[in-house]
Simulated assay, not measured.
Amino acid sequence: MRPKSVILGERLSLAAIILLVVLAALGWADTVAQAGVAIALIANGLLIGLFLLATLLTTRMASRVGLGLLVVMTVLNLIGFLYQVSVGALAEGLFGVLTAVQAAASLVAVVMLMRPNALAWYRAMAEVSDQ
């Protein structure tokens, strides 16, 4: 049985992914204007797909590789968010608020997935799969 921290981490990560979809939809016109439709589809699809893959690998299959990917992607996401804040480029209004909430939800999700009981569950699941 999955620990509560893994379940909560999964829910928060999925909420962050939903916010990524909403942000992609809200920023679609600007992204297409700057990069074109093909690049907008590939960039948004790849980002959302990788976050979803890493979340499911981590929370459903107890994959340490998935957890590592999720941590790396979250750190890169936070670096981008903090850079936007530092240079004053964070969008105003709803888009800016959703960006901040998405970054926070991703960070809290990773923290929940790195709690001691979650790490113990990953180890126990690895031992079960080795047998």
Rank of each mutant, 00 (worst) to 15 (best):
122 Y>Q: 11
8 L>H: 14
33 A>F: 01
92 E>Y: 02
16 A>M: 05
122 Y>C: 09
91 A>W: 05
89 A>I: 03
42 I>Y: 12
55 T>Q: 07
38 A>I: 04
99 T>N: 13
56 L>C: 08
59 T>Q: 02
70 L>C: 04
71 V>R: 12
124 A>R: 15
113 L>E: 14
33 A>C: 06
51 F>Y: 15
95 F>Q: 00
49 G>T: 09
125 M>P: 02
99 T>Q: 12
6 V>M: 14
80 G>L: 03
56 L>P: 12
122 Y>R: 12
66 G>V: 03
115 R>T: 13
48 I>K: 09
16 A>H: 07
81 F>S: 02
19 L>P: 03
115 R>K: 12
1 M>P: 06
40 A>M: 10
92 E>L: 11
102 Q>P: 06
5 S>E: 13
115 R>Q: 14
97 V>C: 01
95 F>E: 01
47 L>E: 14
48 I>F: 02
119 L>D: 12
37 V>N: 02
108 V>Y: 07
53 L>A: 15
89 A>K: 10
41 L>H: 00
15 A>D: 02
60 R>W: 06
114 M>A: 14
45 G>F: 13
42 I>N: 06
65 V>E: 07
81 F>M: 01
114 M>I: 13
126 A>D: 15
96 G>P: 00
23 L>R: 04
62 A>R: 10
66 G>E: 08
32 V>F: 03
61 M>T: 10
8 L>T: 15
53 L>N: 12
55 T>L: 05
111 V>R: 10
39 I>E: 15
23 L>E: 02
27 G>H: 00
110 V>Y: 01
30 D>M: 01
41 L>R: 08
22 V>A: 13
116 P>I: 07
51 F>Q: 08
130 D>L: 12
72 V>G: 03
64 R>S: 07
17 I>R: 00
103 A>I: 08
60 R>H: 07
75 V>K: 07
24 A>N: 13
14 L>C: 00
31 T>W: 00
2 R>I: 10
32 V>M: 05
109 A>T: 07
114 M>T: 14
33 A>T: 03
63 S>A: 04
26 L>K: 03
109 A>K: 10
60 R>T: 03
26 L>Q: 02
50 L>Y: 01
70 L>D: 08
13 S>A: 09
71 V>K: 05
21 V>D: 04
62 A>Q: 07
122 Y>V: 10
62 A>E: 10
112 M>L: 11
126 A>T: 12
68 G>C: 11
108 V>G: 06
101 V>S: 07
91 A>F: 04
1 M>T: 14
108 V>S: 08
110 V>M: 01
2 R>W: 02
38 A>K: 00
38 A>R: 06
125 M>T: 11
80 G>H: 04
16 A>C: 09
79 I>H: 11
17 I>E: 01
96 G>C: 01
93 G>F: 06
92 E>W: 01
121 W>Q: 11
32 V>S: 08
18 I>K: 00
97 V>L: 13
105 A>H: 05
106 S>M: 11
80 G>S: 07
2 R>H: 11
51 F>K: 08
5 S>W: 01
118 A>R: 05
5 S>T: 15
112 M>K: 02
94 L>K: 05
85 V>A: 07
130 D>T: 11
121 W>Y: 14
68 G>M: 10
18 I>T: 09
30 D>G: 13
30 D>L: 01
23 L>M: 09
30 D>F: 00
55 T>E: 10
129 S>D: 11
52 L>E: 09
60 R>G: 00
6 V>K: 08
86 S>H: 02
39 I>S: 15
